[in-house]
Computed example of a mutant assay.
Amino acid sequence: MNDGGLRERKKRATRLALSQATIRLAFERGLDNVAVEDIAAEANVSERTFRNYFASKAEAVVATHVERGKRTAEALRERPADEPLWDALTGAIAGQFEPPPDAPAPPRIDRYTTALQKLLAEPAVQYEVFRAHAMAQDELTAAIADRTGTAAGDLYPQVVAAVANAGLGTAMAHWTRDPAQSLVALLREVFDQIRAGLPDPR
């Protein structure tokens, strides 16, 4: 790997560490009660480093979603070329939420749900979520265009990316209300319905 690629990986790792630290502390204390210096200390970096990466705590919260969008587009490009598009999309998206074998146990569901809902209700966070969705959709559109031999400005990859993001958002909204269920299973159910053309359930 060249030096440029290594630097980019390190930058992405730092962004992700700061984002995860912000989310952890916000869950424990509430976003308003978390200072930038607390986040920097939690991530073992300087306060200046935090400000080099993020303009606000809300932006840091949502950076995990932004990174996930980039990884999803990268994963789609790495799927087998002969795999059907919606199978590839399902695998690329669901794969971002499958925990590694050595992942720690999740927090208590009741506390997690309340903290997550409160964090997502913050107006500043909602604004950053909107921006993150747009960026993720652009990344996915470009990857779909590459895969299908179209241009990112064409209607087809834009529609597919919009539908995929809507499916992801719907699954996550259901999961946020009840994190005891499997998000990966929800995602696969949503994309199974999309792949089938969303037939009338009656």
Rank of each mutant, 00 (worst) to 15 (best):
G167L: 04
A121T: 02
A162Y: 01
K118L: 14
E78K: 14
A180D: 09
G30T: 01
L186N: 08
M172A: 13
Q137I: 10
T90V: 06
T14N: 06
A162K: 05
A173Y: 07
E8R: 14
G169K: 08
A35M: 06
A81E: 11
K118V: 11
D38C: 00
S19R: 01
A136P: 10
G4P: 00
A196K: 12
R9Y: 00
P123N: 08
A73R: 07
A81N: 03
A73E: 09
T64H: 13
A143F: 00
R147V: 00
R48G: 13
A180C: 02
V163N: 06
A173S: 14
F27D: 07
I93K: 03
E128D: 12
V190M: 10
E83S: 12
D102P: 02
E189D: 15
A26M: 06
V160A: 09
T72G: 09
N165C: 11
A58Q: 06
E189C: 08
V62A: 15
P106D: 01
P84T: 03
N52G: 10
V160I: 14
V34A: 07
G69L: 13
E28K: 06
P101T: 11
A121L: 03
E47F: 06
T22I: 03
A164I: 02
Y156G: 03
A152G: 05
L116C: 06
A88N: 08
T114M: 10
R131K: 15
E122D: 15
D32N: 10
G95W: 03
Y127Q: 14
R12W: 08
E67L: 15
D3P: 02
R15L: 11
A41F: 09
R111C: 04
L6R: 15
A185E: 10
T49W: 10
L25W: 08
A136S: 15
Y112N: 03
W86T: 10
G153K: 04
V62E: 12
Y127F: 12
A41W: 05
V190G: 07
V190K: 06
L183P: 14
A173P: 07
D154L: 00
F130S: 14
R48K: 14
G5E: 12
P199H: 00
R188G: 09
E37S: 13
E37N: 10
A26F: 06
R15E: 13
R68Q: 15
P201L: 00
E78G: 08
V160N: 03
V66F: 11
A92Y: 00
D32F: 02
E28D: 07
Q181M: 06
A55V: 11
A55G: 15
G4T: 06
A40D: 02
L186A: 08
V61G: 12
W86E: 10
M172H: 07
V36Y: 05
S56T: 14
A73P: 09
Q137H: 07
D3M: 13
A115W: 03
G91C: 07
F50E: 05
A142N: 02
Q137F: 02
A115M: 04
L85K: 09
S19L: 04
